[in-house]
Nucleic acid binder design. Structure first.
Lengths: 347, 347
DNA sequence: AAACGTTATTTGATCGTTCAACTTAGTGAT
DNA sequence: ATCACTAAGTTGAACGATCAAATAACGTTT
């Protein structure tokens, strides 16, 4: 049998196409009696509205775009996997789908927006990795394209909580602060920080948390702060410097850096009973080598992002409106630094 | 200004809408002169055909579906990231986009197919992780839905190269065979294998490679074969067994298993000068701990999958037709097992 | 100059929905 | 009996493209 359409269904039921459309989109407009009859026929025939036709008429595709960042380290890949997965499930729950695209640079990403909006009729976008002076958010705001970002808008002057666009983020500073406090509690006083060059928003935030904890403890260690680009070798070299400067422990802005630092530390002295290197993101690598790390509630973040974005798209005004700006707290995954010797990571 | 459409453009140029449509879809039908004129106007106005309208008429969405598998270990997440990225880029190059969906089980996946075909008008699917008696491929074939799989069809009776559907796979057996040969060359004779329970296709294939290498060397070691479910702890326990049985080296079906095995090996004797544990997939974890591992050419696989799938979809008959079945060779990433001590993994 | 064959371009119909305006019937107030 | 109002359902038009068939333009041949 041919595929069912509104018209074919309407004919076989003796009602008009619009009535059926109403059963689907505005059930309250239809008399309960006929509604049941139609609903039954729909189930019977396996009818599904054509998204193309609907899209053409309503100008909504129920598709959200998300960019695949270029693969760099690979170490963070698993985080992305978890994020994408949670995003997909959440979107699916709200009747949306996720469309992937890849872009090498932010400029390229903006160029893709234009294309995708026309060619694929995307309804909105999920952004990741916001940073200082992000052109992407500016462009999207200017063109009034709905979007939500994982990452708050970074600005020296404006309060992220008064930002025009919705965002969800993890309080990285709170994470590194907690990590630093743990090291302090265990008797360390010369605690270094290995982070990225200033200007990256998320990176600066993590550095701030470390500094905050030290200041609260009355220990100042500004000379134990190293800025390097991400990567395992860079982390190892930075740790070398810090040890030379007297550091006995370090907090890092990423697991890649921490992994390098861990190698250097083990080269200098055997594994202590408590952590002396702490990473960020709690990647499987951290689990594998028994590296303590700040863990982001990434699945939760994904759900919230979809929540606020679909809310914006459905235009539900104020009813049950989710927070437009949301800062989630990370947790600290504490492990014991006996890579491949102890049992910590076997759990 | 209002968004350009075929009609608005046609009016401003004094030609008919169909001529413009032809410039886009069948340029050879248009006189070069008018074609240039139209092309110029298109560029000028930033016109992009509405995908919804086109989709409604042509019944093609230029969208391909791919399932997000449930996240298990996390260790393999980075592989998925690389795979998705390459897939997205390749698809983009051919004018297609990727739509994500998530499904917990194969049954669920099939259910989603039905929905997605109607609701999202997907043109085809990319499958991953094919296995014995895969219901998904059967369903798709039966309903004549275009798809290509990463993973050959596993069957005891039929030759995968005569399969009805296109697939691209990596010759895992060749990988473990090479890995085993490396260990043999270094003087090991009691080489164990830690793999998954028989029946998983890919897993059996990897086991076969190990056995092949041993047999070729005249060394039989059937008692050094352990079957466990994937995971780090399971790998550690399995290695314990194998060492008790006299094994001095192991080849594993995954990096998770290998990581566990590596821990056990280091517990028994210090790191040797050459690899004694070899994993599979060359995940970042392997890089991090200096674990040798069989590396799949995943980006290449992704490109080939898209290639064969888009070819099927465009119906280009025989012209430049890519191989319908493709078995790629993995490579062996050899590293030195001094986790966090040597410099091997800093490279 | 008429007939023909190509090539270039146009026109009408169609894909399957939803929107907006309209009809019809029923209810209750004036 | 008239009017106003709501509820239930109908109809024509529109969204923006492509397909199929018809027409116009143009150089060649007879």
């Amino acid at each position: 049998m041919a595929k069912a359409t509104l018209v074919s269904l309407a004919e076989s039921l003796g009602v008009s196409r619009q009535t059926i459309s109403n059963v689907i989109n505005a059930p309250h407009r239809v008399k309960p009696e006929t509604r049941l009859r139609v609903e039954h026929a729909i189930a019977e025939s396996g009818y599904r509205p054509s998204s193309a036709a609907r899209q053409l008429r309503t100008r909504r595709s129920m598709n959200l775009g998300i960019r695949m960042m270029p693969v760099v380290d690979g170490i963070n890949g698993s985080i992305l996997d978890r994020f994408l997965h949670a995003l997909t499930e959440a979107a699916q729950g709200d009747g949306y789908r996720l469309t992937l695209f890849s872009a090498a640079t932010d400029d390229d990403e903006v160029r893709q927006y234009e294309d995708l909006l026309n060619v694929a009729d995307l309804d909105g976008f999920v952004l990741t990795g916001t940073h200082h002076g992000d052109q992407r958010t500016a462009w999207l705001l200017e063109h009034e394209i709905p979007f939500a970002s994982f990452g708050r808008p970074w600005s020296d002057t404006e309060d992220p909580f008064s930002s025009l666009h919705p965002w969800v983020d993890v309080d990285g500073g709170a994470g590194t602060e907690q990590a630093t406090r743990l090291l302090l509690d265990q008797g360390h006083t010369a605690i270094g920080f290995i982070g990225w060059p200033t200007g990256s928003g998320a990176g600066d935030d993590r550095r701030t948390g470390w500094r905050r904890a030290l200041q609260a403890a009355g220990v100042f260690a500004d000379q134990l702060d190293v800025e390097v680009h991400d990567g395992v070798p860079a982390g190892a070299r930075a740790a070398e410097q810090l040890i030379a400067a007297g550091a006995t422990a370090v907090v890092c802005a990423s697991d890649s850096l921490a992994l390098g630092a861990l190698a250097t530390f083990r080269g200098h002295h055997p594994a202590p009973a408590t952590p002396d290197v702490i990473g960020f993101d709690d990647t499987p690598v951290a689990t594998a080598v028994g590296l303590s790390s700040v863990a982001q509630p990434i699945e939760d973040a994904a759900r919230q992002i979809i929540r606020v974005l679909t809310h914006t798209l459905s235009g539900d005004a104020e009813s049950g409106r989710p927070d437009k700006h949301l800062l989630l707290r990370p947790t600290l995954a504490q492990r014991f630094p006996h890579p491949l010797a102890g049992d910590g990571w076997l759990a």
